[in-house]
Design a protein around this nucleic acid. Sequence first.
DNA 1: GTAATTTCTAAACCTAACTTTAGGTCAAGG
DNA 2: CCTTGACCTAAAGTTAGGTTTAGAAATTAC
Lengths: 151, 151
Amino acid sequence: MPVSEGLSIGALASRTGLAVSAIRYYEAQGLIAPWRNPGGQRRYQRADIRRLSFVMIAQQFGLSLPEIREVLAGLPDKRTPTPRDWARIGKGLRVHLDQRIDTLTRLRDNLDGCIGCGCLSLPKCALYNPDDRAKSKGSGPRYLMGDAPED
Amino acid sequence: MPVSEGLSIGALASRTGLAVSAIRYYEAQGLIAPWRNPGGQRRYQRADIRRLSFVMIAQQFGLSLPEIREVLAGLPDKRTPTPRDWARIGKGLRVHLDQRIDTLTRLRDNLDGCIGCGCLSLPKCALYNPDDRAKSKGSGPRYLMGDAPED
DNA sequence: GTAATTTCTAAACCTAACTTTAGGTCAAGG
DNA sequence: CCTTGACCTAAAGTTAGGTTTAGAAATTAC
């Protein structure tokens, strides 16, 4: 086992807990870029374990794969990322997370107001503000609140 | 325009901002139950406007359609829901929302710890706890952290 | 030197939450 | 009466994020 032979996809899979198919999929989405050995098989750096772990964490925070790709673009291209590099993009994640918590919290406060006052015109109270509904969890088109219901 | 002719699907769509196709889909998912007029067209009660508004809000809070159906099951079946009825299930929503905010906040704190201490073994810090990763946003199987990477 | 694993690619399949399409019916206006 | 627009059903298409399958080639194990 020479020094820089790299990890096979199966090894990377068992180190990260991801399925082999998922790792190939991430490659197709531009999240990771292995090289190939003489036989055409994928080989990964040890730093890719951390890279994939980061992907998994960012997903839990609600980022889409394209968004994660953006964040990862903040890492150096030609050298192995240092702890400082990771800390830097980790802070980018935090900003994202803060926004989500904020939105949810504001939504909750609005809901409380509706329950408290008894008016229960929830669309007006909690949804009428277009800022709050902006892709809080979007899958497929959604036409929301073009006009406020009066009932 | 006699008293209880009800709303057509198009009228309900424009009152709620939903697409007609979405309303039919919700019916298929058991979220709303219109009756039919002699010609076979769907007719809705005015209270259904609120029902659909509630569905939209619950979606923003991250509930799936089956979950929303469960919550709506807490409404009276044979009479029009009163403000008190809505307030009651609104509180159910609040619990759900609180949990999500909580999970996200804990996750954020963990991330802060990782960045702060410089260890950056993010999988261990933020993910190793199985509670946190339980379907925070699940779409498709995910094999997470069977073992903690050492790199 | 085989046999058993892994890995390869491409394409099909999966779930959620809808939309679009196709072909036909109902309802309202003039 | 006739046309136009709203509505009907069933089925297929869409996006995200993957998994499964099929058939072939590379590696590893004995």
